[in-house]
Every structure is written in structure tokens, then in C-alpha cells.
Write a protein that binds this DNA or RNA. Structure first.
Lengths: 191, 191
DNA sequence: TTGACTTAACTAATGCCATTAGTTAAAATT
DNA sequence: AATTTTAACTAATGGCATTAGTTAAGTCAA
């Protein structure tokens, strides 16, 4: 048999296809074999574009973090300044719901300390830090607050995705409740 | 070659060995092959005790949830009534740090809706609900509060384990900060 | 005690996966 | 037009889970 033409494939479509695969079949089904099938090539050919499965997962993580950042920027734009934090939270959770596989990829990079991954992530920290400006916190307090917010929202998404919430109770109400409670506690700190 | 005697192995040691493996090498290294090596048997022999890899992971999840419950009960005992929630949080995080692999197994059961898994988990919800009694919340509010607390603490553990917190700032202080902020927000609700 | 049954180990084989090595032809460059 | 680079390919290896079939140790009833 003859090798196929070289035109079709570029990094962009590879990652996009992988992201699609992740969201449709789950992050666990992101394999070189499955991805190759969707791209109509053989899996060893992927090594011409990506540094094995770990390399693919790293790229997918960065792609996901960047898209999440975009989603947060959009959420920030489209809502009033008053409830920025709630808007951000809803935007974050909305992204995780719409892109469960990509969201999972986001914090499953093979090496989280990789500088590219780290850099993508710190842009998000910056954005949240900025949105917290109105609360007039000390520098350290603000960093603790960002960590808290991330923990709260990421924990919510993670538990929601893994089916950790068994009860018959609105998830969206839980989300508003916990974000508002947390922010109320933060606000009370100013006194 | 001859099959080996039947005396040695029981379910208890299998799960304990798997838990040890998880904590030493990571949850991702919990494979039938690795577990069999540690038990000095061949991997197909494990099928006499466990329903394949998914069955093993289910058992490990239940084991982990039950141990986490124990850790929380201990934490509750050993601290004053005043800061039960902070004590619980510290106990929870302490368990996750001491048993990272088992903790990860805890929310990676193959089927989270499985009733055994669900039951083990709802014991924890009950314990936390109970500890929240002092705050005098409405029933629904209390459930939202439990979800919030779980999200907060699980999110913290998850991000800590995955290296999600890059900054040079005390993690323990972040933990106290976020738990206290959240609980202050909850307490403010009574008015 | 002996014989039948059950059980928990085994070996062998299958299929899927990632990965490496080596090949080939299309595309790009000189 | 010739050469180089590139991106596909096939073939092969080793690790994994899993299934099927085998065997001998342990259990238990006659």
C-alpha cells in the first residue's frame, strides 16, 4: 500500500479532534489508537506530530486551560460588576459541563510543573485575582481567597462529574449558595 | 509446575496490599499485574477473589471511603466542639495527604452510583451534617452547606495533589482561611 | 481413612494498547 | 531536475486485562 498525501493534518485539527473525543467518550478514552482512528491514520503516524501519549495529554491540557480562560473572560464581560465572582463561577462550571473531557484533561497533564502548563494556569489566577480587587484584601489574603475559590469551584465540578452528589437537590442552587457563602465570609473580613 | 497452597490469601490482605500499592506508587499503578507481583501470584489468579480490575477498584473505593470516615470520626473526637468543622477539614486533608492513592481511589469507583459505594459515602454526609447542627440551618440549607464544604475540601486536596497550587504560600494557612471564610459566610446566614 | 468435591492456584492464548525501527513516496527546496 | 525533508506506512516488541482450560491442595461426607 502507498502512504497517504501529506496535506490534511496539522496540530490544530489533531488537538481539536482529541478534545472532541475527550468530550464525547471521556478523558479515559483519549488514546493514540482512538485518536488515530478518528483521523483516519495509523497510530504510529501520530508520533510525527506529538510526543507520544504524554505529549498529547500535555497539549490537550494547555488547550483546555486556554479555552477555560476564554470562557472566564467571556463570563466576566457579560455580567454586571456587582456579582463578578458568581458570574465567573457559573462560567467556570458551565465550561466544565460543556467540555467534561477537556476539563478533566486540564488538571491531568503528565507533568503539572511543566512551565507551559504552569503559565497557562497562572493567567487564570491573574484573572480571578483581578476580579477580587473590589474586596480590598491584603496581598496574602487575596491569594488565599483565590485558592479558596478555585478549590470550591473545582471541587464542585469534580464531584458533579464523578457523580459524587447523590441527593435530590438542585446543583445550581448549591453552587450559588456556596459561592455566596464563601464570598460573604471574605467580605466580612474587611471589618 | 505445581499450584501453590491455598492458605495465604484472603480479601483483607488483597485490598490492604492494593491500598499500599496505591499510596506508594500512585493510583494509576494499581493494576492486576502489579498487585499480583506484590502478592507473589500470577495476575489471572486474582480473578478468584475479585471481579477484574473494575471489581478491585470498587473494593478499594469502599475501603478508602470507610477509612476516611474513621479518620473524620477520630478528628471529631479529638477536638473541641467549638471548631468541629475546622477539625474535620484538617482531618480530611490529613487523610488525603497520608493516603494519596487510596484517597484518589475514593472517587474513582468504576460506577459511582453503585449502592455499596453510595452507602459508604452517605455515612460521611451524615457525619458532616451532624457536625453542622450547631449552625441551626434549614434542612435544605444544611444540605447545600455540606455540599459546599465537601467541594471546598475535596477541591483543595485534589489541587494540592495534582500540583495545582504553584505559589509560595502556606497551604495549611490557605486551608484554614478558606474553611473559616466559608463557615463565617454560613454563620452570617442565621440573621 | 478414603473418595468426591470445591477451590485457588497455574499455564496458554487472545486482543488491545503504546512505542520503536525501518521503509516509502509525496512535497518542498535547491 | 535532483535532492532533501517529511509524514505517512508496515512490522515487531512488550505490557496489560481478560478468558479458558488444567491441576493439585484442602475440605468434607461416607
Amino acid at each position: 500500500m502507498s502512504p497517504r498525501p501529506k496535506t490534511s493534518l496539522d496540530m490544530e485539527t489533531i488537538i481539536r479532534t482529541a478534545a472532541d473525543l475527550a468530550d464525547r467518550k471521556g478523558f479515559g478514552d483519549v488514546t493514540l489508537a482512538n485518536l488515530a482512528k478518528e483521523l483516519n491514520i495509523k497510530s504510529p503516524s501520530l508520533y510525527n506530530h506529538v510526543d507520544g501519549l504524554p505529549g498529547l495529554k500535555k497539549q490537550l491540557a494547555i488547550y483546555g486551560i486556554n479555552n477555560l480562560y476564554q470562557a472566564l473572560e467571556d463570563a466576566k464581560e457579560n455580567f454586571s460588576k456587582k456579582d463578578v465572582v458568581l458570574a465567573l463561577s457559573i462560567g467556570y462550571v458551565g465550561f466544565a459541563r460543556k467540555h467534561p473531557g477537556v476539563y478533566e484533561a486540564t488538571f491531568n497533564a503528565p507533568d503539572p510543573s511543566d512551565s507551559e502548563v504552569q503559565d497557562a494556569g497562572s493567567k487564570i489566577v491573574g484573572l480571578v485575582l483581578d476580579s477580587l480587587g473590589a474586596f480590598g484584601l491584603e496581598k496574602e489574603e487575596a491569594l488565599h481567597a483565590v485558592r479558596g475559590l478555585r478549590s470550591l469551584i473545582h471541587g464542585f465540578c469534580s464531584l458533579e462529574q464523578k457523580g459524587g452528589f447523590g441527593l435530590n437537590l438542585s446543583l445550581n442552587e448549591s453552587l450559588s449558595f456556596m459561592v455566596e457563602a464563601f464570598m460573604a465570609g471574605i467580605a466580612a473580613r474587611r471589618c
